[in-house]
């Protein structure tokens, strides 16, 4: 009898049950918001498209030599979204662009999340000079025209996927840092932190074992919204000609449409297809992130 009780009430089982209950409650609050659910479904579709998209298109979709269509042909005639300036199918290129856009956006937001969470927790945990200096740095990054800084970084370090991820990541972490810092301050005041300190927990243990799990849900919401911003910056960089030369992305397609004179030719399909994809994916990430934030924060729920 005692053994079954032990199994049931082992710290791990308790933690698991608590976690399950909390996430169930969170999901219920999230599901109440129609916008958030729509955003989440949209994200699912985009992720499926990013994974399986390349299997849907013909093998030589990006090849200039093998292109069969006419130059900037309007939709119809076998091409749902017409053709680009080299006679390739715009629809196929758009599907191919999903993967690169999502990868760069998510990787940059992830990098920003790591920097932002670290800075936020450290500056929230330590009072005094460290905190002051870190928050001034975060403030500085928050107000900077981030696109200008990202452009300069890519121009200097050379075009490429990794450079883009770094340039967007290091310019977009400040918002996360501020949210995490505020939450850390709130957690630091709770009695269990006092207990941990009384039991001799060091700074590292306090930050990693007690503060981090408590700020994680908010970090997740803020990261989801950061992906939206990162995708916008990524496509803007690519549109300005700073795309990764080795891969197709929506921003790069728009850059090509722009320089090939799609405006003069009024080839709206060439602009609308990748442009709407950017709009939709950014909208989905924003909707899902906002809904998660609302579900986590009872004050926003009114």
């Amino acid at each position: 009898m005692s053994s079954s009780a032990e199994v049931q009430y082992s710290p791990r089982a308790i933690r698991l049950a608590r976690w399950r209950r909390a996430s169930g409650k969170l999901w219920k609050e999230f599901a109440k918001q129609k916008g958030g659910v729509v955003g989440l479904i949209g994200l699912g579709i985009f992720i499926i498209l990013a994974i399986f998209g390349p299997m849907l298109v013909s093998e030589n979709a990006t090849s200039v030599v093998e292109a069969t269509g006419e130059r900037m042909a309007p939709p119809g005639d076998g091409y749902i979204f017409g053709t680009d300036d080299r006679g390739r199918s715009v629809a196929e290129l758009t599907i191919l662009g999903t993967r690169v856009t999502l990868i760069i956006g998510m990787a940059a937001a992830f990098l920003g999340m790591i920097i932002g969470t670290t800075v936020g927790i450290i500056s929230g945990h330590f009072e005094g000079k460290i905190s002051w200096v870190l928050m001034r740095i975060a403030e500085w990054f928050m107000n900077l025209p981030t696109l200008v800084l990202a452009v300069v970084l890519v121009v200097i370090m050379g075009r490429g996927m990794l450079v883009m991820v770094i340039a967007i990541g290091v310019t977009s972490w400040a918002g996360t840092a501020r949210v995490v810092r505020a939450q850390t301050r709130a957690v630091e005041g709770r009695p269990y932190m006092e207990r941990a300190k009384a039991l001799g927990a060091g700074h590292g243990h306090q930050m990693v074992r007690h503060v981090l799990p408590n700020v994680m849900p908010l970090v997740l919401a803020s990261t989801i919204m950061a992906v939206a911003g990162a995708i916008l910056t990524e496509s803007t960089l690519a549109f300005l000609g700073l795309y990764d030369p080795a891969s197709v992305s929506w921003g790069r397609m728009l850059n090509q449409a722009w320089s090939a004179g799609a405006m003069t030719a009024q080839a709206w399909w060439y602009i609308l297809a990748p442009g709407l994809m950017i709009l939709l994916v950014v909208l989905c990430f924003t909707l899902a992130g906002r809904a998660l934030e609302t579900a986590l924060n009872p004050r926003l729920r009114k």
Binding site: L232, L254, A257, M263, I271, G275, I278, V282, T286
Partner: peptide, 13 residues
């Protein structure tokens, strides 16, 4: 969510 360049290009067209 709409990129500025998309709005500008559509407005011009």
């Amino acid at each position: 969510a709409a990129p500025t360049f998309l709005i500008s290009m559509l407005a011009i067209i």
